[in-house]
Design a protein around this nucleic acid. Structure first.
Length: 478
DNA sequence: CTAGGGTTAG
């Protein structure tokens, strides 16, 4: 408040001024900041509007602040860090603003920040609404954290928002990606109402959790209940068809898509290609692949891996070269396909070159699967020692897949020395793996080393598999 | 005052 005298003075002044001026049109109103903020297209513009707000003391104009926040938190050309600073300047953010920030963090690189914001929101006694939980559950999904999913679930139940379809969908999704598919199913079953998205989420959950038969069963039920699937649903169903070998249903889905004139975008198209390729209908897969207008690296990988798996090695390699022409960046999975193709055909030199190019040309660090292909490839061509060397050079501990490939190579090329070490390592990982005994025992027999065969037989009889590591030093009496 | 979901490779 101004002192009394000044107030009177000002009032007098304004009366004086208004009396002394001749009538004139009212000055143009300053454009509303909300409208400006709505039209905001870039961070530069946003910063100008933000500056306007600061100098005109309208920073607490929640209308405009909401718009600015939405722009820089959610849009492609925004800036989440700036949004966070802006948010922190707002004295009493309303629930829309909290939800906006939670939403932005949920799908970013720090989903845990969304959970943290939610806790802060509750601390400030802002009531979460039906727009809060779906975003929060998105954060749980992206975190893959079952603990936070459960905690958010209890908050949902307390809030009474468990009937909201977006919330149900978020819960089903969060439990699915946390690999708790039975929890997801329970939420699904207990929902009073379901829409196509929720059915799709549940079907997709099964497909992504290696339960393709459950996915297909649920799809049947969905149809019985009168829901018509869309492209999103069908992409998941096709994935289930690929996994469980349902070529027929997959083919029916293709016809359905055609009859309905549904748009086949990159995801649905890839799902179709993969379904046919996985089921060995390579020519059909290739035809679809060639006719797809939009492809991405996933599409290419599906086709390359399909070709490789069914022995069309040269076509797989040709496709790999074609990928470079299309300027699509291959990724680690592309190389699993290409290297397994080389392995299949025994193209050792080609395989080696590609393996080396992964890091040098594409900047992709080989993973254990890639080493697995190389070990297998070297082993098959009889270079057992080299294969063992490569395996030892890995930064990871060898797994049973890679050890199994090496053991097979030992067997096929009669390298008992390496086989003994490999068997030892396999038994460390799987102490009850009788199969490797049989392999080793057969190898000794083949070499005429009957003493070792006998020792092994006695150990096996005693069921004393744990003694096997270093077993050859064990006396007969033990 | 405002907003939101589910999809493809191994």
């Amino acid at each position: 408040m101004l002192p009394r005298k000044q107030q009177l003075f000002r009032r007098g002044l304004s009366v004086h001024c208004s009396l002394s001026l001749t009538p004139s049109p009212p000055p143009p109103k300053p454009p509303s900041l909300s409208i400006l903020a709505d039209r905001c297209k870039s961070m530069d513009q946003l910063k100008q509007i933000h500056a306007q707000m600061i100098v005109s003391s309208r920073i607490q104009d929640n209308f405009a602040a909401s718009r600015l926040l939405s722009f820089c938190a959610l849009t492609e050309s925004g800036d989440l860090n700036y949004a966070s600073k802006l948010f922190n300047c707002i004295e009493e953010p309303n629930s829309f603003m909290w939800n906006t920030m939670i939403r932005a963090y949920a799908s970013g690189s720090q989903p845990s920040e969304a959970l943290f914001l939610y806790i802060k929101m509750r601390f400030f006694e802002v009531v979460p609404g039906k727009h809060t939980y779906p975003f929060l559950l998105k954060a749980c999904s992206n975190l893959g954290s079952i603990l936070s999913s459960k905690q958010v679930h209890t908050h949902v139940l307390k809030s009474g928002l468990d009937l909201d379809l977006h919330v149900v969908n978020g819960l089903v999704r969060a439990y699915s990606v946390s690999k708790k598919i039975d929890y997801a199913r329970r939420v699904f079953d207990e929902a009073l109402e379901r829409n196509l998205s929720i059915w799709t989420t549940m079907i997709c959950g099964y497909a992504q959790n290696c339960c393709p038969d459950d996915a297909l069963e649920l799809f049947d039920e969905m149809i019985v209940q009168g829901f018509e699937p869309n492209g999103v649903t069908l992409a998941s169903v096709l994935s289930a068809c690929a996994q469980s070998g349902c070529l027929e249903l997959g083919d029916q889905i293709r016809l359905f898509i055609k009859r309905k004139g549904m748009e086949v975008g990159v995801i649905l198209g890839t799902a179709l290609v993969h379904m046919y390729a996985k089921n060995g209908a390579i020519s059909m897969a290739k035809e679809l692949f060639d006719n797809l207008l939009v492809k991405n690296v996933v599409t290419w990988n599906a086709m390359i891996c399909g070709l490789a798996a069914y022995g069309h090695v040269d076509e797989a390699l040709t496709l790999f070269r074609g990928l470079e022409r299309e300027q699509i960046e291959p990724n680690d999975r592309t190389f699993v396909g290409v290297l397994s193709a080389c392995c299949h055909a025994g193209y050792l030199d080609v395989g080696r070159k590609i393996f080396d190019s992964m890091k040098s040309m594409y900047g992709i660090d080989p993973k254990i699967e890639h080493y697995g292909c190389m070990v297998d490839m070297l082993g098959r061509s009889g270079r057992v020692v080299e294969a063992e060397e490569l395996m030892k050079s890995m930064t990871w501990k060898a797994d049973v897949v890679i050890l199994g490939a090496l053991l097979a190579a030992c067997k096929n090329h009669g390298n008992i020395e390496v086989a003994e070490r490999v068997v030892e390592q396999i038994l460390e990982l799987e102490p009850h793996n009788h199969g490797v005994f049989v392999v080793l025992s057969n190898m000794y027999a083949e070499a005429g080393r009957w003493e070792e065969v006998s020792k092994l037989r006695k150990l096996m009889k005693k069921g004393n598999l744990k003694k096997i590591p270093g077993w050859s030093h064990v006396d007969d009496d033990n």
